[in-house]
C-alpha cells in the first residue's frame, strides 16, 4: 500500500503543465519497473481516463489502485497523486497572499499575465486536432465559446447540452 502511495506521489509531483507529458513516466514506472499492468491495458486505461471527467493523473492512479487493492487501493493512490501538489500549492498560496502587494511581485505578474493567456490559447489548437474538428463540427466549439464568453453561460451547461446533443444525434442516426 505504501509503495502504491509513494509511486503515485512521485508521478503527481513530476507532472508539470498537466496531462500528456506524464504518460511516458507512468508507463515506465507502472509497466516496466513495477509490472502492475501491461502496456496494452495501460493504453486502454489512458483512453478511458482521458474521456472521463476529472484530473487525468488522479484518474489513472485510481484505476491502478483499484486493480491492485480494490477500493482502499484506489483511495490511497488518489491521495498519493494529489498530496504533493496540494502541499506545494498551499505553501505558495500562504506565501503569495502576503507578498502579492509587494511592488516587485506585482510588476513581475503584470508581465506574466499575458503569457498565461497565451499558454491557455495554445492547447485550444492542440485539442482541436485531437477532437477532430473540421468544417462539419467547428460550429460546436465556436458556439460554446461565444455562449460562455458573450452570454455568460455556465460551462457546466455547455457540457451537458453537448452530451445531450451528441446522444440525440446518435439516436437519430441509428
Amino acid at each position: 500500500m505504501f509503495e502504491l502511495f509513494i509511486t503515485f506521489a512521485k508521478i503527481g509531483l513530476f507532472t508539470i503543465g498537466g496531462g500528456y507529458a506524464m504518460i511516458p513516466l507512468i508507463k515506465q514506472t507502472v509497466v516496466e519497473e513495477k509490472h502492475w499492468t501491461e502496456e496494452e491495458e495501460l493504453m486502454d486505461l489512458i483512453a478511458v481516463a482521458q474521456s472521463c471527467p476529472g484530473v487525468f493523473a488522479v484518474n489513472i492512479s485510481i484505476f491502478i489502485g483499484y486493480k491492485m487493492r480494490r477500493t482502499p487501493g484506489a483511495l490511497i493512490c488518489a491521495m498519493g497523486a494529489a498530496l504533493p501538489s496540494f502541499v506545494i500549492i498551499l505553501l505558495i498560496a500562504l506565501f503569495f497572499y502576503r507578498f502579492r502587494e509587494n511592488a516587485m511581485v506585482e510588476r513581475a505578474f503584470l508581465g506574466i499575465r499575458p503569457a498565461v493567456v497565451a499558454l491557455i490559447a495554445v492547447p485550444v489548437f492542440k485539442m482541436a486536432r485531437t477532437a477532430k474538428i473540421g468544417w462539419h463540427n467547428v460550429w460546436i466549439p465556436v458556439l460554446a465559446a461565444l455562449a460562455i464568453w458573450m452570454l455568460g453561460v455556465n460551462p457546466v451547461y455547455v457540457i451537458l447540452v453537448a452530451a445531450l446533443g451528441g446522444y440525440t444525434y446518435g439516436q437519430l442516426l441509428h
Binding site: 491557455i120 485531437t130 460546436i140 466549439p141
Partner: peptide, 30 residues
C-alpha cells in the same frame, strides 16, 4: 451511445478552453 455522447462533448471542450482565453483578455490582465 457512449461514442455519440463524446461526439458532442469533445468539440465542446475545445470551445470551453477558447472561452477561458477570451474571458481572460481583460484590462486587468492586459
Amino acid at each position: 451511445v457512449v461514442e455519440s455522447i463524446f461526439m458532442g462533448v469533445r468539440p465542446a471542450v475545445v470551445g470551453l478552453i477558447a472561452a477561458a482565453v477570451l474571458i481572460l483578455c481583460t484590462p486587468e490582465n492586459f
